[in-house]
Simulated assay, not measured.
Amino acid sequence: MKDAGYSTPTSLRRYITMATRCGVNCNPALLAAGITPQRLAGKDPVPITNAAMEHFLERIIPVTREPCFGLKTAQLIQPDTFDILGYIALNCASMREALALFPLYEGAAGDIGYTTVERRGELTLVRWNCGARSPLVRRHMVENVLASWTLYTNRIIGVDAKPLRVWFSHPAPGDVGLLRHYHDIFRCEVLFGQPCDGSWIDDSHLDTPFPQANRALLATLLEHAARRLEAVDRDASISHRVKNMIRLMLAESLPSRERVAAQLGMSSRTLQRHLSGQGQNYNTLLRDVRRELAIHYLEHSSLSLDEISRRLGFSETRSFHRSFKQWTGTTATAFRKDLPRQP
């Protein structure tokens, strides 16, 4: 599944609903893409490959004759729009925490695109990097995702945190009259032909409390997301699976090779043999995961160093400080202080 990539049926259903409202019968396009009704039905519907999703959209978008198809599909926002990621965001304490977690777990809800969060002075750029190959599909997917981010925050989470500006890398629509639809949703400056696709957010909005935050439920959701990531990656390399399992188990305590091996259904010796075959070893992977998470938390969250240390499985904060200096050549305090302010 990892090689082909996948999308959630939830996102496909919204596109189908929008196309149906445009008077289009979606069944021929679904069948042409190899998507049967059974794959979309049931409590646990089968994930849709990215190739099938793109094939469907490439056929359906032109016949809707809706130039803002992706943008208007975002108006169908629901709590499950972003699958488990939406519920994770809903239970975070703030947008800052949600943005820190989103890139780590979004693979649990599909991999047709990925999010990066970049601090630029007093602003934060939240980019979405779309993997669709078709320019037509990419345009509508990007507009849908960025609009959905804004509407989900406003309508579902209940926080009015409109972006300062929105960037699209594709050209503006030919009909200037269509621009009002963008401004109705984003309520800010919308620019086209930009270096990337993303929303610029004032850092002052990042710590606005989310009204439905629930720490206990968030912990459960993160565990579920991590397990789903591990399931999605069963066909990936053993080192990739080990890193995902380490990320999951770090939430409780520092995982040993024996515990990780047991979770993967093999003995510690068998795990080490597989890793050796890939030129890897367990301690190196554990170090890599801790380093990656440490840098991510320092760059994209306001977590204290004590809390970061705890999340990475260190029994003492001073041990975290010592390890971080070994990993990066600088201290965690200096690293956070010296983050770039302006591009």
Rank of each mutant, 00 (worst) to 15 (best):
L248Q: 12
L31V: 14
M53H: 07
T208L: 07
G174I: 07
Q263A: 13
N281V: 12
M249S: 11
S204M: 12
I16A: 06
F314M: 08
T49E: 06
R310M: 09
A334N: 14
L136K: 04
R241L: 10
N27R: 14
F210Q: 10
V176Y: 04
Y114M: 00
D203T: 07
Q263H: 13
D80A: 10
C22G: 01
C92R: 06
R96K: 14
M53P: 01
S267N: 12
R119F: 02
L85V: 06
R241Q: 15
G23Q: 06
F186D: 05
G277R: 10
D80R: 05
P163L: 05
N129L: 02
T330L: 05
I185D: 05
L298H: 04
A19W: 02
E223G: 12
Q278F: 07
A334I: 15
N214H: 10
A332C: 11
R39L: 15
V166A: 00
L275C: 14
E230M: 03
R311F: 01
P62C: 03
T115V: 11
S253I: 06
G174E: 14
H181Q: 15
S239K: 12
E223I: 07
V232L: 14
G131Y: 02
L339Q: 13
S268C: 14
R14S: 09
D3M: 09
S276P: 08
I185E: 03
P209V: 09
L275K: 15
R215M: 02
I295L: 11
L179S: 01
R227S: 06
T81P: 10
S315I: 11
R139V: 00
R291N: 10
A89E: 15
D202T: 13
A213W: 07
T330K: 08
S268V: 04
F69I: 09
L286S: 07
R290E: 05
M141Y: 08
S256N: 03
A109V: 03
D111R: 07
T64E: 06
E230W: 04
A213I: 00
D306K: 13
V142R: 01
W128S: 03
I84G: 00
K43P: 00
L191S: 01
D338R: 15
S301V: 07
M266G: 00
S301K: 08
I238K: 14
D184Y: 12
M245C: 15
L99C: 00
R227L: 11
R133S: 07
H240Q: 15
A108H: 05
A41F: 12
E97R: 00
G23V: 09
R257Y: 00
E66C: 13
L12F: 10
F314Q: 08
N25K: 14
A236W: 02
S199V: 11
